[in-house]
Measured scan of single mutants.
Amino acid sequence: MATGGRRGAAAAPLLVAVAALLLGAAGHLYPGEVCPGMDIRNNLTRLHELENCSVIEGHLQILLMFKTRPEDFRDLSFPKLIMITDYLLLFRVYGLESLKDLFPNLTVIRGSRLFFNYALVIFEMVHLKELGLYNLMNITRGSVRIEKNNELCYLATIDWSRILDSVEDNYIVLNKDDNEECGDICPGTAKGKTNCPATVINGQFVERCWTHSHCQKVCPTICKSHGCTAEGLCCHSECLGNCSQPDDPTKCVACRNFYLDGRCVETCPPPYYHFQDWRCVNFSFCQDLHHKCKNSRRQGCHQYVIHNNKCIPECPSGYTMNSSNLLCTPCLGPCPKVCHLLEGEKTIDSVTSAQELRGCTVINGSLIINIRGGNNLAAELEANLGLIEEISGYLKIRRSYALVSLSFFRKLRLIRGETLEIGNYSFYALDNQNLRQLWDWSKHNLTITQGKLFFHYNPKLCLSEIHKMEEVSGTKGRQERNDIALKTNGDQASCENELLKFSYIRTSFDKI
């Protein structure tokens, strides 16, 4: 039985969820670079991206490699990797027998973001014989899940209580170790020597080791999670996991709180800001991140802002960003909400898709409305799209047979046209069989910064309504002859009103 693990408890099935942008060198404390989270699957090609990484700022997932063999891993080693800020997950990587050479110096898994409450997941690794993470000293947050690894031993010899604050939620089941077939031998045991430290858990006094050649490092209890030197002297209180010299914040392997210019500090002093819960960055760093993602459509890219001495992905609820200094300031009234469309555009074809934009005031991208039916549609669209004030790209209304009016965009005031449909149009209306009105132009103002209007096959939309939009939106004169079809717009509506004058002759039985 794995020490510190839980057996036999019912657990939810383990679901495996399925960018080499360097964020800056980590400095003297770390020998390499800070790398983003990685999802490495199918083959070993991307694994080489770990070569210079000291910190993975995010998670590391290595999974679904069915053609790899043990010899493929023999020359692979990433000794610079010290810390993973989120979680480490391995799933069905064939041929991998140990992690001792792959990650010989991995010391800390912070667990800032977890995989279903777990910071370390080893699942269905069919050839893994031992973990071998002999320098792993601290899992700051989260638990361990090690399950269905039929060859995995050296679990009962690990004292997880020396690595985690609590072992109650560890789930370590259905491994070879369960069948008591392992016969784990710690260093020196074969020669009758006791080389590794022994600890007591559940009444068992057991030597602690990761492999037959690597003991588990056990520091004096007084050192807590700070770690200790090879001689057993406690590291500085700002260290986490390990250090090369005692009581020196510049000799830590990793930091308990924050890293700044080669030393570990309790908090980031001005003019620095907390970033990702582990390091200090200056304003320029946060500003660069903001600008890199301002026009990016890459998933996970955030326009970072500053709030409460932190550089964070977005302002919290009730705050909006001051564009001059990136500071989050309290909103006066309802907060603006910028919604970034991942692929640059979004099609609204149902109430469900409209709900995804609920509360958005600025759309960074283009909207395509293609709704053919739905219950209580006008009210639903207004509830979900009615706060949109600005669209950076274009607005396209296409084959939306259920629409009679666009009044559900009740606050839309600006279409920038930074991206144009077919390279020309910022407003595009095609084949809307029941569209009769755009907006009530006596109450609604709309500016279209650039781009043209396109109207074709809107049989109940009168040309007068379209011409009014040209005047109000500032697009009059931009359109070419064929942009607004004269014969297919309003051709099934009563669009022309003329005053009919009647004269009559009164007659009676005795007068003409």
Results as ranks from 00 to 15, higher is better:
Cys186Pro: 00
Ile82Arg: 13
Val108Met: 06
Cys243Ser: 01
Glu238Trp: 06
Glu57Cys: 06
Ser161Ala: 13
Gln303Ala: 09
Asn175Leu: 06
Leu133Ile: 08
Thr68Phe: 01
Lys191Cys: 08
Ile163Lys: 00
Ser296Tyr: 15
Ile158Gln: 04
Val218Ser: 10
Asp86Trp: 00
Glu180Gln: 15
Tyr154Pro: 02
Asp248Pro: 00
Pro79Ser: 06
Asp184Ile: 03
Gly32His: 10
Asp39Arg: 05
Cys311Tyr: 00
Asp177Phe: 09
Gly192Gln: 12
Ser98Gln: 02
Asp159Ser: 05
Lys191Met: 13
Asn202Asp: 09
Ser161Leu: 09
Leu47Pro: 02
Cys53Phe: 00
Ser317Glu: 02
Phe66Arg: 04
Tyr134Met: 11
Arg69Thr: 05
Asn325Tyr: 07
Gly37Phe: 02
Asp39Glu: 04
Ile82Tyr: 14
Phe285Cys: 07
Ser77Gln: 10
Pro330Phe: 09
His226Ile: 08
Pro197Tyr: 10
Leu233Asp: 14
Phe283Gln: 10
Asp178Cys: 13
Arg263Cys: 06
Asp288Arg: 13
Pro31Thr: 08
Thr267Ala: 12
Thr157Cys: 07
Ser296Lys: 07
Leu233Asn: 13
Lys100Ala: 12
Lys67Thr: 02
Ile163Ser: 01
Gln216Trp: 02
Pro270Lys: 11
Asp75Ser: 12
His28Thr: 12
Phe73Thr: 04
Val55Arg: 01
Asp178Tyr: 11
Phe275Gly: 01
Leu240Asp: 06
Arg110Ile: 13
Ala119Glu: 00
Trp160Cys: 02
Gln245Trp: 04
Gln61Ser: 02
Pro336Cys: 02
Pro36Ala: 09
Pro104Trp: 00
Glu180Leu: 15
Asn179Tyr: 00
Glu51His: 02
Thr68Ala: 15
Phe116Met: 01
Ser324Trp: 04
Phe116Gly: 00
Leu60Tyr: 00
Tyr94Ile: 04
Ile312Pro: 11
Thr140Phe: 04
Gly192Cys: 07
Val108Gly: 01
Cys315Val: 03
Glu124Lys: 00
Arg145Asn: 01
Cys328Tyr: 02
His226Asn: 09
Met38Asn: 10
Leu152Lys: 00
Thr85Lys: 07
Ile122Asp: 00
Pro197Leu: 04
Gly111Arg: 00
Ile62Asp: 00
Asp277Ser: 12
Lys176Asp: 04
Ile139Pro: 01
Arg113Thr: 03
Glu207Gln: 10
Thr140Trp: 05
Gln299Pro: 13
Asn150Pro: 10
Asn308Trp: 11
Leu50Met: 07
Lys67Cys: 02
Arg113Phe: 08
Cys235Ser: 01
Ile185Ala: 07
Glu314Phe: 02
Ser161Met: 14
Glu33Asn: 11
Leu233Lys: 11
Asn43Tyr: 09
Arg297Gln: 09
Ile306Cys: 06
Cys243Asn: 00
Phe258Asn: 03
Phe66Ala: 00
Cys328Lys: 02
Arg263His: 07
Phe103Val: 02
Val121Ile: 06
Pro220Asp: 05
Glu314Leu: 06
Lys191Leu: 11
Phe285Tyr: 13
Leu60Phe: 00
Ser324Ala: 12
Cys301Gln: 12
Cys153Ala: 02
Gly188Gln: 08
Glu57Tyr: 02
Ile163Pro: 00
Gly262His: 08
Cys186Glu: 03
Thr194Pro: 08
Leu88Ile: 12
Met321Thr: 10
Ile40Leu: 05
Cys243Glu: 00
Arg256Gly: 03
Pro70Arg: 13
Ile82Met: 10
Cys234Tyr: 00
Gln303Ser: 15
Leu90Arg: 01
Leu174Ser: 14
Cys182Ile: 01
Pro313Gln: 07
Pro270Gln: 12
Leu289His: 14
Thr140Ile: 08
Asp247Thr: 06
Pro31Asn: 13
Ile56Thr: 03
Gly300Gln: 05
Lys217Ile: 14
Ser143Leu: 08
Cys228Val: 01
Ile146Met: 08
Cys223Met: 02
Cys255Tyr: 02
Thr329Phe: 09
Lys67Leu: 05
Thr250Trp: 10
Phe116Ile: 00
Asn135Arg: 10
Lys217Phe: 07
Cys186Ile: 04
Lys251Cys: 07
Lys217Leu: 09
His290Pro: 04
Glu238Arg: 07
Asn117Cys: 01
Ser284Trp: 07
Cys315Asn: 02
His226Glu: 05
Gln287Phe: 11
Asn195Phe: 14
Cys293Leu: 05
Gly262Gln: 15
Ser213Gln: 08
Cys280Ala: 01
Ile201Leu: 10
Pro79Ala: 08
Cys196Asp: 00
Cys235Leu: 01
Gly58Ser: 00
Lys80Ile: 08
Glu130Val: 05
Asn325Ser: 06
Ser112Tyr: 01
Lys310His: 12
Asp75Phe: 12
Arg263Tyr: 11
Cys311Ser: 03
Thr199Glu: 12
Asn138Asp: 08
Glu238Val: 05
Cys252Pro: 03
Ser324Lys: 05
His214Val: 12
Pro70Glu: 03
Gly241Gln: 02
